[in-house]
Design a protein around this nucleic acid. Structure first.
Lengths: 160, 160
DNA sequence: GGTGAAAGCACCGAGTT
DNA sequence: AACTCGGTGCTTTCACC
């Protein structure tokens, strides 16, 4: 995992694409006062280097009726069951991310559900996995996502 | 927050764009055997309805030297300080998401750092915020992101 | 609500400096 | 490594269904 050397132009291109990945390269070129070909080549290089791994849509899950977010900490009977249980957890589509953690829990995951009723079903599915001793749930009452651009900006400063 | 009625075509368009938001509309049109104009109109409608809130790049933070992920649970001296502390936490660029939660912690956040040394600094910054009583950290040793398409598929089935 | 056509742009590789 | 340029292909609108 070698670090890739990003210069200021790369950084500014990323900044724009993080905000809107469908921005036309000619538009980026105009804003940065470089040619569209340069934007194209640099994006391609960052893709080849594996810095840019893809592009995706941001969706409003609340508008789709999925406004419930919770974190579920999982305690296992034996640590050796981690891999098996993690695989079962990842089969549940309403689990958006799962981690193997140190500290209190063995596994830690985030779920997205319609409501408390639905969340209960999902948590019971996790509880029912062979090897799970018990779970502990934290319900999110308010989520605030941080700006990806600000993280990128801090990373960029460090890379200089 | 009214639910938007998505039909099968909308769903398939989302499926493709979730995977790669730069997919050309003509390409989507060919795959779904509809016209490019239709793809264009439907995406626009989903944007106007607020279902699609934007598009972004996926970056490999490990390649940029940021491979450390941890979750930090925050205990407050008084619940009334929640808003103030949340705002201070959100000012730290290495905090990627923060939640107000029920259960064990008052606030719960995810951080991304270079290494343990760097993470320690970030956690100390949180500890130092006025009103924070103490924190509890869980270090992620392995992260597995779930496929957004699978969640979308489950949501779509429910919407019918 | 969908289509096909058409004008205007964008993409992206080749050749040049 | 960046620029220009041009063929090919994409976007977006609109009259029509």
């Amino acid at each position: 995992m070698a670090k890739f050397k990003l210069d200021d132009i790369d950084h500014q291109i990323l900044d724009i694409l993080i905000d809107n990945s469908r921005t036309a390269f000619t538009d980026i070129a105009k804003r940065l006062d470089i040619s569209a070909g340069t934007v194209h080549v640099r994006v391609k290089k960052m893709e080849e280097a594996g810095i840019i791994t893809g592009s995706s849509l941001s969706l409003d899950y609340k508008k789709l009726g999925y406004s419930f977010i919770a974190y579920v900490g999982v305690f296992l009977q034996k640590t050796s069951q981690t891999k098996f249980v993690l695989e079962r957890i990842n089969e549940i589509p309403f689990v958006t991310v799962a981690h193997v953690t140190t500290g209190k829990f063995n596994i830690f995951c985030k779920i997205r559900a319609k409501n408390t009723e639905h969340a209960k079903k999902i948590i019971f599915m996790i509880d029912d996995i062979e090897g799970v001793y018990r779970t502990e749930t934290m319900i999110s009452m308010e989520e605030s996502l941080n700006d990806k651009k600000r993280l990128m900006h801090s990373i960029f400063k460090e890379l200089q």
